[in-house]
Computed example of a mutant assay.
Amino acid sequence: MSPISRPSPAARLGALLGSAHPEPAVAVTLFTTVLAVATGRGAGGSALVAASVLAGQLSIGWSNDALDARRDVLTGRRDKPVAAGALSPRVVGVAAAMALLVCVPLSLANGLLAGSVHLLGMVAAGWAYNLGLKRTVASPLTYAVGFGTLPAFVTLGLPGAPWPAWWAVVTAALLGVGAHLVNALPDIEGDLATGVRGFPQRIGRAACRTLTPLVMLAAVGVLLVGTPGRIDLPSLIVAGVAVAVAIAGTAVPAAPDSRRPFRAAVLTAALAIVLFLFNGSAVV
């Protein structure tokens, strides 16, 4: 009988990182860091923002996989290291707790008010979603609150602790809701089969894939309305492309299993973020 092989430390580390939802964690961290640079947080302040947001995102990602371990096994999510047997839920749960403990002092180092906004906004909303709000019609609210507080986290760390412009908060909140819909689209059937009935699951795949690019497009509209004096030709070009992509993803008929609406939503979101960052210096 051959001995049972054990994963190497490198393999376990890779599985742990894969369980942290690395793509959205890096995307949210990068977006917030670039916004911090654009608003004048400086090299040190921007690095602190990046470390705070990354720790918070890691805690949210790991807690999601730890809490959803049984459901992921039932739905055959072999892309999830816990469901695939590469890690135990306990290991991932401990990692989530440790990341949360690290996130608290890092966030508060940005200033008491800024840190509290991050912890009570993005981090608390992410954990609340994982702990049960994902199964309710209020599921988009957690994303709206979480993303909507990121501009405030960045600007409140500046001298004088200024609040961000209204359009920055609304745009970030809409991008968050869009991110929720994009994330839910591929797994709606599996979610319904395991009792997850958040807003995307309740409205169904067809409605969700139509609504998703429109939410991203609404973020573009808020930017154009909120910063009329700062819109230049490159911004108008980006906005025009976003409109075209959103229309192509929703108005043009597609097969039920087509990935075009999903890809249109992702591209529209990317263009909205580009437009948002074009106006980053006006956030304060």
Rank of each mutant, 00 (worst) to 15 (best):
P3V: 09
P7C: 08
P7N: 04
R12V: 03
G14K: 06
L16E: 04
P22L: 05
P22S: 06
E23M: 07
P24K: 14
V26L: 15
T29W: 12
T29M: 12
T32V: 12
V34I: 15
V34D: 01
A36W: 03
G44P: 01
G45P: 10
S46F: 08
S46Q: 04
L48R: 13
L48E: 07
V49Q: 05
A51L: 15
S52G: 07
V53C: 12
Q57F: 10
S59P: 00
G61S: 05
S63K: 02
A66R: 11
A66E: 12
L67N: 05
R70T: 13
R71H: 06
R77H: 07
R78M: 13
P81S: 03
V82P: 04
V82T: 04
A83E: 13
A84H: 08
G85M: 12
A86R: 15
A86M: 15
L87R: 07
L87N: 02
G93P: 11
A99M: 07
A99D: 08
A99V: 01
L101D: 00
C103E: 11
L108Y: 09
A109T: 06
A109D: 11
A109N: 06
L112P: 05
L113D: 07
S116W: 12
V117S: 04
V117Y: 11
H118E: 10
A124T: 09
A125M: 03
Y129P: 00
Y129R: 05
V137N: 02
Y143K: 04
Y143C: 07
Y143H: 13
G146P: 08
T149A: 08
F153D: 00
L156P: 00
L156I: 07
L156C: 03
P159R: 12
A161C: 07
P162C: 11
P162V: 03
W163N: 01
P164S: 06
A165E: 10
W166D: 12
W166V: 14
W166I: 10
W166F: 12
W167E: 02
W167N: 03
A168Q: 05
A168M: 10
V169S: 04
A172F: 14
A173H: 06
G176C: 06
V177T: 08
V177W: 00
G178N: 09
A179H: 09
V182P: 00
N183L: 05
N183Q: 07
D187I: 01
L192S: 11
R202H: 09
R202Y: 06
R202G: 11
A206D: 15
R209D: 04
L211Y: 12
T212S: 15
L214P: 02
A218P: 01
V220K: 01
L224K: 10
V225P: 09
G229W: 06
G229I: 05
G229Y: 02
P234W: 08
L236W: 04
L236P: 08
V238C: 11
V245W: 03
V245F: 10
V245G: 02
A246D: 04
I247N: 01
V252T: 08
A255I: 00
A255D: 14
P256N: 14
R259V: 02
R259D: 02
F262L: 15
L271E: 13
A272E: 01
I273D: 00
N279P: 00
N279K: 07
